[in-house]
Amino acid sequence: MSIVSLRPHRVAQLVLVPTILLTVIGVYGSMLWTLQISFTSSGLLPTGKFIGLEQYFKLFEQDRWHVSYRNMFVLGGIYMFTCLAFGLLLAIAMDQGVRAKNVLQTIFLYPIALSFIVTGLAWRWVLNPTTGLEYFVQGLGFSGFKFNLLNNPELAIFTLVIAAVWHGSGLMMAIIFAGLQSVDSELWRASRVDGIPKFTMYRRVILPMLLPVFLTCIVLLAMGVVKSYDLVVAMTGGGPGYSTDLPAKFVVDHLFDRANIGRASAAAVLMLLTVIALLVLSSVATRLRKHSQSDQGAKPEQGNKS
């Protein structure tokens, strides 16, 4: 009787309780704990005294933190843009029905099956001037050939971009391709009747329709950027110097090797704040877009009625 009297949505809520509890304790509890630690002088053990914002002040005195924080945006910006661009081009090529589509798709998708550690190691060998591309080309007889990005503190960050784009564009291709396939074929037929060039069709009709797909892609890529740690460790170790350091690596280094969990927590909190800021920005952007869409959508309807 009593079971029957429960409404379905109440049952669903009850089922969700353990998950919600786990999330609240495991995720938000840990966040609060990290926040609390970041206000203490904790070293190896989380038992330090309360020292207010001092860990944050010291963090901002560290040039290494500034470099790694800036790198997150440099790497993130170039990586996300290049990955999307490559993914889009590949997806359109697939959509246009190139030959041996399935084989190519497998080839482009394959890198995503490798972990970042393997990706990083492989690219490190390729880009290392004494073992990789430079050595190979010089061996072919072009002794003046130089390809030495890994040694240059200003350019080494781009080696990470190369490896990450190689790793990620296949997945972007797959997602965008799925989006393109879902476009109604009637649309294409209509465009042919009207004689609209393909380029214009993509630019003005198809791609705007796929905006939600691009948003998914951007969220996926952005998460990858914020948490990227293994790629740097495998490829450059943050070097030369600390020119390719990333916040996640900064945090882990201070957490374990430097035995300074107070500083590490402060850096982690700043990472979290950055993510929250980006989330707020993107949700505001989506809301604005919805507003302008519903405004545009409302007008013709009224016109029809009158």
């Binding site: 503190p153 600390y242 430097r258 300074n260």
Partner: peptide, 18 residues
């Protein structure tokens, strides 16, 4: 101390590369 050692190591690392 581990704090100052970390800072010095970071600095040397940067000096070597630049």
């Amino acid at each position: 101390g581990s704090e100052v050692r970390g800072l010095l190591t970071d600095y040397l690392n940067n000096f070597w590369a630049n």
